[in-house]
Nucleic acid binder design. Structure first.
Length: 357
DNA sequence: AATTACATCAACCGCCAAGAT
DNA sequence: AATCTTGGCGGTTGATGTAAT
């Protein structure tokens, strides 16, 4: 037996809110507050709505200082970084973006940002899963059924951001370079692409292994000898762009260490990715400023991860949220101050699991 | 102009955790 | 300790708008 409904469904209006309903609800809450009980609120207000519906309407639309649409690059940046780190904890992500609701961010991620980052891939190729899980085929299927879609998606995103093909195909991810660096970079990428095309012709690589159809892993596994020189070249092209900033380090035990000894905020697992090529070099290139290394006495690795950093070129705005993370509310929809980082311990487990595969 | 496909987003659903009884 | 109630959350749906054919 299911649980009892929170309200009498038969006598409750559903669907879009009318301006009159909005005005009624807003006026009441601004005057009297919620009274600490959303379920009882509709009766007090005189609305034929479910209490949950009232709550949602207020939190997502009517309450003051709500922003809709027009996400900035900085906001994209934060959403992306947090999604990779903690997954679809939209309320936590929303807490870092003043004026944004979890629902808005969730919609924005699902409809735009994800596509912007991963590209518009064909999600269905007539596979047996009937298109129910677009991630399923893309990462070898079967062994990953115990992973959440979120974890798979984050893995996919992380891997996508690590491979030179996606980088080549997505100029939005290109770092800002000086003219010389940009020229070198483009030449390197073209060279890489030419090698691949040549191999495709010479060895009649099956279509399923075409790297141009976003399967760099197969290419890397079949032709690892062609990976490293180019990666070196790409890496070298960005020499001189290193930063001495340090904020987060990862210990040998996979624990995050903040320079100011505060609570850790982001974890980039120091687990070797499944890629067979020189992931460190490639990662260093792709995330140049995003995964930064310091040679401190413990030889720890900085793990500040951010996929848009190269685009923005601004470091300061990437750390503000991390530094304030544990001082903010866990939820944009409440006004309490649950320490969100208490939850962080287990948040990375599925990401780590995906990484281990 | 009509139809179809795709994109967007507000709203709903159902589960879970925490607090109250 | 067990049960109930409520708030909160993430996933999903469906209505609407827009672009493509």
């Amino acid at each position: 037996m299911g649980r009892a409904p929170c309200c009498d469904k038969a006598n409750v209006k559903k669907g879009p809110w009318s301006p009159e309903e909005d005005a009624t609800l807003k006026a009441y809450i601004e005057k009297s507050g919620t009274g600490g009980n959303w379920i009882a609120l509709p009766q007090k207000v005189g609305l034929k709505r479910c209490g949950k519906s009232c709550r949602l309407r207020w939190l997502n639309y009517l309450r003051p200082n709500i922003k809709h649409g027009g996400f900035s690059e900085e906001e994209d940046n934060i959403i992306c970084s947090l999604y990779i780190s903690i997954g679809s904890r939209w309320s936590i992500i929303a807490a870092q973006l003043p004026g944004r609701t979890d629902n808005d961010i969730k919609n924005y991620w699902n409809t735009r940002l994800k596509k912007k980052l991963l590209g518009r891939r064909k999600q269905s190729n007539g596979s047996a899963n009937g298109g129910q899980d677009p991630n399923h085929d893309s990462i070898n299927g079967g062994n990953h059924q115990n992973l959440s879609n979120s974890a798979l998606e984050r893995l996919q995103l992380h891997m996508h951001l690590q491979n030179p093909f996606s980088f080549y195909n997505n100029p939005a991810l290109w770092p800002k370079l000086n003219p010389f660096q940009e020229k070198t970079l483009i030449q390197s990428l073209q060279s890489f692409n030419n090698i691949e095309s040549s191999l495709m012709q010479q060895h009649l690589l099956p279509a399923s292994q075409s790297t141009t159809t976003a399967d760099p892993l197969a290419f890397q596994q079949n032709y690892p000898q062609f990976s490293n020189p180019n990666v070196h070249e790409l890496d070298n092209s960005l020499n001189g762009m290193s930063s001495s900033d340090s904020s987060i380090r990862v210990s040998d035990e996979n624990k995050v260490i903040m320079d100011d000894h505060s609570t850790p905020h982001l974890l980039k697992p120091n687990i070797q990715p499944a890629l067979s090529f020189q992931a460190d070099e490639l990662e260093n290139f792709l995330n140049n400023k995003t995964i930064e290394y310091t040679a401190d006495e413990d030889d720890h690795q900085i793990a500040q991860f951010d996929c848009f950093n190269a685009v923005n070129g601004s470091k300061d705005n990437l750390f503000w949220w991390a530094n304030e993370f544990d001082s903010k509310s866990a939820s944009s929809n409440s006004w309490d101050s649950t320490p969100v980082l208490d939850q962080s311990q287990g948040m990375f487990q599925d990401f780590e699991l995906a990484y281990n595969l």
